[in-house]
Write a protein that binds this DNA or RNA. Structure first.
Lengths: 146, 146
DNA sequence: ATCCTAAATAAGTTTATTCTTATTTAGATT
DNA sequence: AATCTAAATAAGAATAAACTTATTTAGGAT
């Protein structure tokens, strides 16, 4: 989870190590909790005022595809969040307020993934989010959904 | 899965039945495969030229939140697709070309969902997508990811 | 049949994200 | 150290999706 590890991983996969990539990795490592792409962008801009948002999005997606970062899809209200991916786990997402909780472990068993691989599909990763309503949004929901 | 069923469900939850909602439900029922929001919008515009895209998005989200429609997150490249939700299942999504395959059954067991409910969280549904590379994108991937 | 009110919509604005293209650069090769 | 080339970037345009607000309307009450 250190910067060095991320950089090593990128090198091993043949990607170039740019100042922008170092900055993104550094920002992710320093981030207290799963930040939004825009938060990472803002943080990096303090040091590198000219970095483009596209570069941030592109590299976050790359890190996700390489399995080093986990993307949490918060379904509307809020934008995605990015989490350093150790250990792999899933999330409970509130449809009303956009808050989320981490669940322990993985709810998908490897056996099921095999079925996918048999179709010639190379599975890189998976995303599972449970959607619903958090405790403090329950009442609101009862009004909203009658 | 008939229009009537969807309308009944909306009524039971206290939602009003508007011409726009009927049109969206009709369009979903007639769609040959999981359409994109924009495709549904275009189809409805043939009959109702003044319907706004916001109305389509809003109601698709509503149907998803009520568990009547399943949203497939295709991760970049392509936008989400919406599927009439019978039976519940998951998807294999190609990160390169955006194509997807349906998997049989649900890979998440109810027992695991209970853990979430114990936190006072009301689980409405869940979304699981397996991400990777389809057969015809494998070579491209080997170039791309070295 | 008319009225009432909260819900739903249209229109326009705003934001998040991706795409396109010209330029720059990391890292390999010489 | 200089050169080369594919990869990465910045900038700006394009798109998808959501928000804001004024107006309309579905469905219940009168």
């Amino acid at each position: 989870m250190s910067d060095t590890f991320f950089v090593q991983q990128l090198r091993q996969h043949g990607y170039k190590i740019t100042p922008q990539r170092r900055a993104i990795i550094e920002a992710l490592a320093e981030a207290p909790l799963a930040p939004k792409a825009s938060e990472i962008w803002e943080k990096i801009r303090q040091k590198y005022p000219d970095i483009s948002p596209d570069t941030v999005y592109r590299n976050l997606t790359l890190l996700v595809d390489l399995g080093m970062v986990q993307q949490i899809y918060l379904r509307s209200k809020e934008t995605s969040r990015f989490e350093v991916n150790i250990p792999h786990h899933h999330h409970l997402v509130c449809l009303k307020c956009g808050c989320y909780y981490c669940l322990e472990g993985c709810l998908v068993n490897e056996q099921d993934l095999e079925a996918a691989k048999q179709r010639g599909f190379t599975v890189i990763g998976h995303a599972l989010e449970l959607y619903g309503y958090c405790l403090s949004c329950q009442e609101v929901r009862e009004e909203g959904l009658r």
